[in-house]
């Protein structure tokens, strides 16, 4: 039997952390892209687009991420098109992230005071000019703290991908535990590594929030 030293364990966990980071980035970039599209669909004047987007958001916010993962991973296989754990996790996390980001960003756009719309209208600006020069710049600043804050949830959410066999931090921890039977050491290290990823982001979100407050935008 192979002996694992502490450094072997840490090294393996650190290597697996790469995949947690990559999966988080995919989820975030994909989720942001889809989420942005959804945000504008939700704000459009088309009733059906609004409803469709609301349904989408409610669906993905109202079901556990784990079920979404299962449905995509096993569902694809059941329909005769098996997909890799990589792809399944990327799709599920993208959909999940987009639903939350859509809701966060819609809230930020609506949080810009109504008077800003009125003032712009009275100055002769049309919808797009108002959006571009007045509403979006303000909403963007408002949205940065909650968006960065939510990215922490995305990172932790990637742990679920371990269940469909994707080897990221959590899965690596489980595998190492099966080989070494040192659950406390290993899962403490796993937790620490997650914390090392998330805590700076949380701090950054808090810093951005304070900066926003100081700028008089809240």
């Amino acid at each position: 039997m192979i002996e694992f030293t502490f450094w072997d364990i840490l090294r393996n966990l650190l290597l697996a952390t790469r995949w947690t980071i990559v999966l988080s980035l995919i989820a975030f970039v994909g989720g942001a892209t889809v989420g942005l599209l959804l945000t504008f669909m939700r704000l459009s004047s088309n009733r059906w687009l609004q409803r469709l987007t609301s349904l989408y958001v409610d669906l993905f916010q109202g079901t556990p991420l784990l079920m979404q993962l299962f449905l995509i991973f096993f569902g694809a296989a059941a329909m005769g098109h098996p997909i890799s754990a990589w792809l399944a996790a990327s799709i599920a996390l993208t959909l999940f992230t987009s639903a939350f980001l859509c809701d966060i960003w819609r809230g930020c756009l609506e949080a810009v005071a109504k008077g800003q719309w009125h003032a712009s209208r009275v100055l002769g600006m049309n919808y797009f000019q108002t959006m571009r020069h007045v509403i979006l710049p303000q909403a963007l600043r408002l949205s940065i703290p909650p968006t960065v804050g939510f990215s922490v949830q995305v990172i932790k959410g990637t742990a679920l991908a371990s269940i469909i066999g994707f080897v990221e931090l959590t899965k690596a921890g489980t595998m190492l535990n099966n080989a070494t039977f040192e659950p406390f050491t290993i899962f403490a290290l796993v937790a620490l590594l997650y914390f090392a990823l998330c805590y700076p982001l949380s701090c950054y979100a808090r810093y951005l929030e304070k900066k926003l407050y100081d700028a008089g935008l809240r």
Binding site: A113, G115, Q116, H118, A119, R121, V122, L123, G124, M125, N126, H133, V134, P137, Q138, R141, G216, L217
Partner: peptide, 22 residues
């Protein structure tokens, strides 16, 4: 009358200023 055309004729000042804070 479009907003643009309207703005050539009518200006408005609000109770709550409504300046663009950014």
């Amino acid at each position: 009358m479009s907003p643009k055309e309207l703005s050539e004729n009518v200006g408005m000042v609000f109770q709550s200023f409504n300046l663009f804070p950014h």
